[in-house]
């Protein structure tokens, strides 16, 4: 039985169709990313799955059960982390997570364990207002997991974090489905979805454009690879003469060889001992998005 089944889910506001006929299946234990720019309908989609919003059409089933009207039996099996840091004002980190634990009839033991697990034990007595952005996100993730839910929704958990804090959070995020937990993550960061998710649903203007593993999405894109060689190792003319190269560019970081046969080109470069400072960049989800929507990704 899939953890989540959506069939033809639709939500309309006055002029806007926020979610437009979405059908999706998420298996138990999967880590699924919903990827899309702001206003793509990700949050509305999640709110309907969580049972916060009533769909105008279609159906949501979570663990085979209906989520609307309010299904409190399901609610204790689901953990939710919302976009903003949704905390009680002026409580310390420990008081915060213990309060959330009580809402799910969980004792202080698991609450303190989760604080430890997200690395906030030394901040236990710090008020939430005094936590850094990364620490606050860790706390809100711990608060979502304190009752050990089978399914977790994380709504843009790394939004507004600096790159270093984002990377630190990835370790934590990738560990939370270790125990077979199903995770649904929304993000507008391509790299994040690529690294964390088993499958990615690319969403834009209320529709799911593609739903597959990140690797399959990039493969399906059939985008050429870009091989960069350090400056001075090879001239543009030499590069253009390498078999399989369809385009060359001269840039500050070196000469770029665009090819659909990166293996063959690398072999040729190796034969000429021209591999100094080489880097290979294949297609990314960013390219997938561009190809699917026909426009630049706007985060």
């Amino acid at each position: 039985m899939p953890a989540i089944e959506l069939s033809n889910l639709t939500k309309r506001y006055a002029e806007l169709t926020a979610v437009d006929g979405v059908s999706l299946e998420i298996g138990e234990g999967e880590f699924v990313g919903v990827l899309g720019p702001n206003g793509a309908g990700k949050t509305t989609l999640l709110e309907m799955i969580e049972g916060l919003r009533r769909p105008d059409g279609g159906e949501v089933r979570v663990f085979g059960e209906s989520v609307w009207p309010r299904n409190s039996g399901l609610q204790s099996r689901i953990g939710v982390q919302l976009q903003a840091s949704s905390f009680f004002e002026r409580l310390t980190a420990r008081e915060q997570i213990r309060t959330f634990a009580s809402l799910y009839s969980v004792g202080t033991g698991p609450a303190d364990e989760w604080l430890e697990r997200v690395g906030l034990s030394d901040k236990a007595d710090t008020r939430v207002e005094d936590l850094s952005g990364g620490q606050a996100q860790r706390l809100s993730i711990a608060c979502a997991l304190v009752h050990d839910p089978e399914l977790v929704f994380l709504d843009e958990p790394t939004a507004a974090l600096d790159p270093q804090a984002r990377r630190n959070l990835w370790d934590l995020l990738s560990s939370i489905n270790d125990s077979g937990r199903t995770v649904v993550l929304t993000t507008h960061y391509m790299d994040e979805a690529e690294i964390l998710c088993d499958r990615v649903a690319v969403m834009d203007r209320g529709r799911i454009l593609q739903y597959d593993t990140p690797a399959a999405l990039v493969r399906g894109l059939d985008a050429p690879a870009r091989i960069t060689v350090a400056p001075g190792v090879i001239t543009v003319e030499q590069a253009a003469a390498v078999p399989g190269v369809i385009e060359t560019e001269e840039r500050v970081e070196g000469v770029v060889l665009v090819t659909r046969d990166p293996g063959g080109v690398i072999t040729a470069l190796a034969a000429g001992e021209q591999l100094d400072g080489v880097s290979v960049k294949t297609g990314t989800l960013e390219d997938v998005f561009l190809a699917l929507t026909g426009r630049e990704y706007r985060a």
């Binding site: 916060l52 204790s76 976009q83 959330f100």
Partner: peptide
């Protein structure tokens, strides 16, 4: 107003408390 802004109100709706 504060709980609506911080989405705490939403968060509490998602917990099994009435």
């Amino acid at each position: 107003q504060g709980w609506r802004q911080s989405k705490l109100l939403r968060r509490l709706q998602l917990a099994p408390v009435g």
